[in-house]
Design a protein around this nucleic acid. Structure first.
Lengths: 153, 153
DNA sequence: CTAGGAGCTTGAGTCGGCTCTAGGTCAACC
DNA sequence: GGTTGACCTAGAGCCGACTCAAGCTCCTAG
């Protein structure tokens, strides 16, 4: 209850965000910090919890595929302060669209992959069954013949 | 009903797969074709419908994030023919995992993004309401103050 | 017969996003 | 007072996945 905005070193930030110190300096250079990073004695970067919080947002946006330029733009808008909420909203909506369509694409792809996994599982299961009685390796493959890609899954 | 495995030019393949001719040659070089691409008169590449089908699978795997080396490996296995189904299955399962966890990550990120979109929508809605009676731009921003990242969404 | 267009090869270039190197400062410890 | 170890800067390097350029060969149409 009495934390007075403790200042954190780049190493500590790296630790709690999972980003490397390299990446942190790189992000700074790319303008991804809302407020300029302060410097402590010896010119060392000194961060606050707010920076960690902001980076957390950045990481989520980045890992969900927001390109650095968009993230930079968003950061700029936040830094500018009140008055540009429409543009922030537009940026976020655009990204929202990107992410949903990416999820859709992945979900579709997953269908095919799941189907193929099923095909190979069945195939190997049959193999195993046939292995008891005499025969061995009776299968003919699962891919080239297994299915016309667009046709089934 | 009487198509006799018509042979297709690289341009036609580009057209029907959406890949560029550059990319098709690049993929060939990367070993992503199950059977070596035949050549027609003048050394021109000549493809079949099977190639298109295979590329369709490749595209799905690629766009769902399978790295080229994995795709190459998978192609190698298919080319080798029957007998390595376990490994194919393992590869597909690994990718299946990649894709599902990617979908999970994206879905989580989407939560935050959706939340933020909501915040800004509300904020602008309030603005608009306040704009009828006297006041203008009463908001204080939506991001730096709007929410502690981890706290709400 | 020549101009255009599609293909060919080899190899270089691009882009996004980091990641690392070299060479230096500083404070702390033994 | 020497050696860590964390940090600094500027700039180069890397990786994945394309993408393009240069210079050539064909074929076809006008």
């Amino acid at each position: 209850m009495a934390e007075v905005t403790a200042s954190l070193s780049i190493g500590q930030i790296a630790e709690r965000t999972g980003l490397s110190v390299h990446t942190l300096r790189f992000y700074e250079q790319e303008g991804l910090f809302v407020s300029p990073v302060r410097r402590g004695p010896g010119g060392r970067r000194s961060y606050t919890q707010d920076d960690v919080d902001w980076l957390t947002v950045c990481i989520i946006l980045r890992t969900s595929g927001m390109p650095l330029p968009a993230l930079r733009r968003y950061t700029d808008l936040v830094r500018e302060g009140a008055g540009n909420e429409e543009e922030r909203l537009a940026l976020l909506r655009e990204h929202h669209g990107r992410v949903t369509s990416q999820i859709d694409r992945l979900t579709q792809s997953l269908d095919l992959i799941t189907f193929k996994v099923g095909v190979y599982e069945d195939l190997l299961e049959q193999d195993r069954r046939a292995a008891g009685p005499g025969r061995r390796r009776p299968s003919g493959g699962g891919d080239v013949p297994a299915s016309r890609p667009g046709t089934s899954a």
